[in-house]
Amino acid sequence: MSYLMLNNVTYCYPNGFKAVENVSMSFEKGESVAIVGQNGAGKTTTVKMMNGLTKPTEGDVIIDGLNTKDYTTAQISRKVGYVFQNPDDQIFHETVKSEIRFGPKNLGFSEEKIEENVMKAAELTGIVQFLDVHPYNLPYSLKKFVTIASVIAMDTDTIILDEPTAGQDSQAIGRLGVIIDALVREGKTIITITHDMEFVVNNFERVIVMANKRVVLDSHKQDVFWNHGVLEEAMLKQPHISRLCHTLNLSDKVLDINQMIDVLKKTSSMVKVTL
């Protein structure tokens, strides 16, 4: 049995709008997975069911053996942390430090453990120098890192990041990669929604593609980004380098610059040998 499972899950909003239809997926501990797809494909609704923020209308969400239907959101949030898309939806404290302390404090951690978790989360997210600042005085980009730190400090087994790259500059996107890598090495499961295909190529192996409220493919990034039918259905584009490789009719299925260089070297040396 997997650590986190969605079994034939459907979610229907109270007004009758069906946002997710018959979705199944499962995750192991220590896995990092990207969920991609158009706005409105059902990505955020799906992940909100993973931390018990919403409960499925049909089907079951099982986390570490617990069916979310039988537990409160507060109980499930000990297992799965969720970083909102819009940091303003999440922040309400007067200093960055008290904001990050809030989660672990609520979980009843000892004062010592709270301090330790807060410092660790602040260091990993690069916001130590802002601990005494009012979060609302920080720019959007840093606020997002405050919300990520707040969830890391709760030390949950699974962390969900909803569009962490939105509005971030290239340095911040690099830092996000470092954070995800460090958390995965600690054995945490990281599930990330993103529209940034280069970010997916650089930081994830497994990719779940959603379109029209359903999962259309759940596979290795190599299979996903070279499956033109699926990309078209989900209105997604290949990563830039893959597209270039495709246009140039090179036979290999590359995803990034290093792979592209290897292919170019291989093809040009083959030509030299034939000559």
Partner: peptide, 9 residues
């Protein structure tokens, strides 16, 4: 376009 998918962008 910070909130948009690639097509919307």
């Amino acid at each position: 376009t910070s909130q948009l998918d690639p097509q919307g962008t």
